[in-house]
Design a protein around this nucleic acid. Structure first.
Lengths: 214, 214
DNA sequence: CTCTAGCTGTGATTTATTTCACTAATTTAT
DNA sequence: ATAAATTAGTGAAATAAATCACAGCTAGAG
């Protein structure tokens, strides 16, 4: 199998989500056109994306929802359950611990960490809480695969380094700073929610300017 | 000014964040090379990106942090304060209300909404809370520019439609479903946190497979 | 005052991605 | 059974974006 372009990988992840929803609504059959509409892209793109996973061989009449879901899920490893750790139990961290998207048959939050010992003792949570100094040992013992970073921005890079040392497979950083690792076998994604909003406002602003200048 | 490619716009938003941080640390002068390292890209790209904003005319010796920040901020409208509404005050919504990234001199959360009247009466929050049926009127009265959607996925599209009707400028949807508007003057970004993690796991999985096959 | 080192600005090139156009396969209706 | 309609698969073309290479500018050292 040739390597998958990143935009394609992103869309395949979205497709998987869409197929899961379709299945839930007992929508058994679909087509590239329908998927394109749901995914916000074109039918060409959907077909090309699916083609990168290898031939499925059902040219005449669309895709079977379940079969396509299995194909994508198997190709990208979505059926292996991943163990998640949340670092930082402020309001965002607490929300992540409870978030349905991280507690299902794909992901499981198995631990959370905070530097504030008091908080650990007083917070009620559905997952075990640990002080930050136990990060490495707990990551190893509980076999945590991925970390969700919800600490203040000035702590984010330090925690990242510690996580990488501990042998974690990947990190999603929600702090508004770009964290990196010198070890480029570790995948890191920086998700800055305020930046997302900033992008939106910038698009709007640029549009309004162009409108004036036209 | 020619229109700005979307990847460039994204990076300029990141750059603005980085420059803000540099300024805070009294780092007054910088270069495309330094910015590239902080931004996770190359110096070529940084220079090209800045060039899309029009000539700055400081060819010889790097960029003044403050001046570049002003240029980007002015070009993309970051110095006009935006008024934010949060819809859905579950754990994620509550976290967004308090999030420092949405409460600074760029953004201000001015209201939050929920369909559950009980929750509105019993929740303590730093912003006024409103029942969902007042959405349109409050968006108008409080001049809310942007909406952050943190409602359950099956409610997300309905709320989106209502927000668009109310004349909002843009929406960030955190529910794990793709919401759309037929009115394409409204900018919408779907931020699915679980999808971000799924992308990460997929990258890892594909990498491990390639490793086996090599 | 001149030379050097370091940096930006930008047209040209390369690479990546999307879009297109057409073929082949399958189903449905008659 | 055949025609018509629908849909996937895919090499080719077009578009978009990233990268490069180098000319030109600036500041500071000698």
């Amino acid at each position: 199998m040739k390597s998958i372009p990143f935009p394609t990988l992103q869309r395949l992840c979205t497709l998987f989500q869409i197929l899961t929803d379709l299945k839930k609504n007992t929508h058994l059959q679909t087509s590239s056109l329908e998927l394109a509409a749901l995914c916000g892209t074109t039918a060409f793109t959907i077909r090309k994306d699916i083609a990168t996973l290898g031939v499925t061989g059902n040219s005449g009449q669309g895709y079977a929802v379940e079969k396509l879901m299995q194909l994508i899920g198997n190709s990208l490893g979505f059926f292996e359950k991943k163990r998640i750790g949340v670092i930082g139990i402020g309001s965002l961290g607490s929300a992540l611990i409870k978030h349905s998207g991280f507690n299902n048959n794909e992901f499981e939050v198995v631990a959370a960490f905070d530097s504030n010992i008091n908080k650990i003792e007083t917070t009620k949570a559905v997952v075990p809480l640990f002080p930050f100094y136990q990060l490495s040992s707990v990551v190893n013992r509980l076999k945590i695969d991925y970390g969700l970073l919800a600490v203040p921005p000035d702590a984010a890079q330090g925690v990242t380094d510690k996580l990488v040392e501990s042998g974690i497979k990947g990190i999603i950083n929600f702090a508004p700073i770009i964290v990196k690792s010198t070890d480029n076998t570790i995948f890191i994604r920086n998700v800055d929610m305020a930046a997302e909003l900033r992008i939106l406002t910038a698009q709007n602003y640029v549009k309004s300017i162009e409108h004036l200048h036209q």
